[in-house]
Amino acid sequence: MRGHLDGLILSVLEDGPRHGYAIIEALQARSGGALDLPTGTVYPALRRLERAGRLSGSWSTVGGRERRTYTLTRAGRHALAAQRADWSEFSSVVEAVLRPPRPAGEPS
């Protein structure tokens, strides 16, 4: 899961800036609660993406509280698009291989 976390984070930030806990909630909501990783791993991942210039993080006031809010940068959008393309290629290859073979005799 760790290998994909960066891409998942970029994708939940696509529709607008969020703070750390909102990102965690969005990850859980989008995965239907199936994404079960220590929430503490998300915060260092945000720093890593920020260092790489894919997110920009800053403190701002959200709902009357100071929050560290993350915004997708242009480089982040490119990275997300590239990751999506890679993933769809990878998953279609795996799916093609995993698909049960047709029963013998059936015309192809």
Binding site: P38, T39, G40, T41, P44, A45, R48
Partner: peptide, 23 residues
């Protein structure tokens, strides 16, 4: 509990601190 043990999380942060200081 959801956050995870410090022994697991701190090294991830420490990598970023080292990267920042190295930069």
């Amino acid at each position: 509990r959801d956050f995870g043990p410090v022994a697991e999380i701190a090294p991830l942060y420490q990598d970023e601190l080292a990267a920042g200081q190295g930069r």
